[in-house]
Structures are given as C-alpha cells and as structure tokens.
C-alpha cells in the first residue's frame, strides 16, 4: 500500500477541502435561513465525503504506522474533530437562536482550520507552533 501513499494523501487533503467547503456553504445557508442547508442531497453528499475522508485517514494511519493516542498531534486531531462535529451540528441544526448558530458556525470553522494546521505542522500546537518558533530570542 505504501506505493499509493502520495495518491491517498492527495485524496485525503482534497476531501478535507471538500468537506470544509461544503460545511462552510451549508452553514452560511443555515444562517441566512435558507432551508437548502439541510436538504437531503447536501446531507448525503456530506456523508459521502466524510466517509471517504475517514477511509483515506485510516489508510494513511496504517501505512505510516502513526496512530492517535500514540502520536500527540494525531490525538489532538481526533479530539478536536469531535469538538468540530458537535459545533457543526449546532451550527446546522441544533442551535435555537441565530446568534447561537453564528457563534457555533464561526467556532466550528476556527476549529476546522486549527485541525488543518495541526496536520500541516504535525504538531499539536498547529499554527501556534509557527508563532512560537518564529518568535525572536
């Protein structure tokens, strides 16, 4: 499987982008009060992308022998993923007021971007690691 590593990693990154873009779009629709946000076609598209994303992630984990709860940065990713899912659910469906929906949406996007930065840096501190290492002295 290691021969397919680059392709699988590419698929993983592409699916992350698709998943994030779809959530961002659905969230905006939900905030605007447009019912399309939760139409079944979009929900099924989301399930499909996320299932494929999970498959690619598990393949990478196995190829690299780097596992959550062994490697700290992967543990961080998994834990923050749970936070992202909960915030996402509030942003799209569960929030009862518009301000709460907006707050959940913004928080979910921030968590999403931070997860991406953790993956990019292979460091639990994510983007913050760059700030620390580039700080003078």
């Amino acid at each position: 499987m290691v021969e397919y590593y680059l392709q699988i990693r590419f698929a993983h990154v592409l699916l992350v982008c698709c998943s994030g873009a779809l959530f961002a779009t659905r969230g905006l629709l939900a905030i605007a009060g447009i019912s399309w946000a939760n139409m079944s076609a979009l929900r099924w598209l989301s399930y499909t992308i996320d299932t494929c994303l999970l498959t690619a992630a598990l393949m990478l984990v196995t190829i690299l022998h780097q596992y959550p709860f062994v490697q700290p940065w992967l543990t961080t990713k998994v834990l923050l993923l749970a936070v992202y899912i909960v915030l996402g659910a509030y942003a799209l469906r569960r929030a009862r007021t518009r301000p709460a929906r907006i707050a959940a949406y913004v928080a979910a996007l921030l968590v999403f971007l931070f997860i991406a930065s953790v993956a990019w840096q292979h460091d639990s501190r994510g983007i913050l690691a760059l700030l620390v290492t580039s700080a003078p002295g």
Binding site: M1, T51, L54, T55, L58, M59
Partner: peptide
C-alpha cells in the same frame, strides 16, 4: 480498504 465506507 474499500470496505471502510460501507462498514462505517
């Protein structure tokens, strides 16, 4: 690995 989507 293609079992993962269906199994999930």
């Amino acid at each position: 690995w293609m079992r993962v989507p269906g199994d999930t």
